[in-house]
């Protein structure tokens, strides 16, 4: 039952965007996030929306699937919207008790909610079109220049790889332990929150013990295979930026320039 959880939610379609270099995609995503904070009117939002729709279309990911990512966040989005409506001072539209709803508030609330939605949709574009492993490699590569100032780029990437490698194994194990405990009469589903939390103890203890044992053995196996951090280490897969990566980055730059221009001159 736990196996159904998909991590990183990679959605392979083999589209143009899927094939882009992960570094290009990460950089573009950063630019996009910055862009979201430059945008300050409905016209530029419209521009951004067009861009996002175009990306979704090219990526061949169904829009429905993209919007599913918003579902877990709807509460936060609604709360943001409501807080902004009431907390912004300005010309009062109407009031509910002591709370005033202002025109500026409505404007601000809609803006913030839109910004959040764009943020989620845009960034999930990155994880939906890039497998977690490739994403990790991309992050490692981008962080490399910062190694001099002490950013442990390789170590971070290695940690992520190992986490990705062991998540399915540990989920499987959790499943097994749960079934074993249930066979002995353990009950994970009923009772109040405290009882349920208590019933997790006999699940977590063996799981932790086994995770530590695994870590120990894995470390030994890695050492036996000459692992010594990234000193003198090469990679089988080389990352190469090609024409289409530069094209994608150029389009992103152009869009950013437009957003900045509109913001400054109107």
């Amino acid at each position: 039952m736990l196996k159904d959880i998909t991590i990183g939610q990679y959605y392979p379609t083999g589209s143009y965007i899927h094939q882009l270099d992960p570094r290009a995609k990460i950089l573009a995503t950063f630019a996009y996030i910055v862009g979201l904070f430059i945008v300050d009117n409905f016209f530029t939002y419209g521009l951004l929306a067009l861009f996002v729709l175009a990306c979704i279309h090219i990526s061949k990911i169904p829009i429905k699937y993209m919007l599913k990512g918003l579902k877990p966040l709807r509460v936060i989005i609604i709360i943001t919207f409501i807080i902004n409506i009431f907390m912004t001072s300005g010309e009062t539209l109407f009031s509910i008790g002591p709370l005033n709803v202002t025109i500026e508030g409505l404007y601000q609330g809609t803006f913030m909610a839109l910004r959040l939605m764009f943020l989620v949709v845009g960034t999930s574009m990155l994880t939906l079109t890039t497998s977690p492993i490739i994403l990790t490699d991309g992050i490692e590569n981008l962080l490399k220049p910062f190694k001099k100032i002490g950013v442990p780029a390789h170590e971070l990437a290695m940690m992520m790889t190992i986490a990705l490698r062991f998540i399915p194994t540990l989920l499987e194990e959790t499943d097994k332990i749960m079934k074993a405990q249930m066979a002995r009469g353990a009950d994970f589903e009923s009772g109040n929150i405290i009882n349920r939390a208590k019933s997790l103890v006999p699940l977590l203890v063996p799981l932790f013990i086994s995770a530590f044992r695994r870590a120990d053995e894995l470390a030994m196996a890695m050492e036996a295979r000459c692992y010594r951090g990234d000193t003198n280490r090469t990679r089988m897969k080389q990352m190469i930026m090609t024409g289409r990566d530069y094209k994608a980055l150029s389009i992103m730059t152009l869009l950013m320039a437009m957003l900045v221009y509109i913001r400054v001159s109107f």
Partner: peptide, 10 residues
């Protein structure tokens, strides 16, 4: 993984 650690060329 092993050859990468040994610094073998790609």
């Amino acid at each position: 993984f092993g050859p990468e650690n040994l610094g073998v060329k790609p």
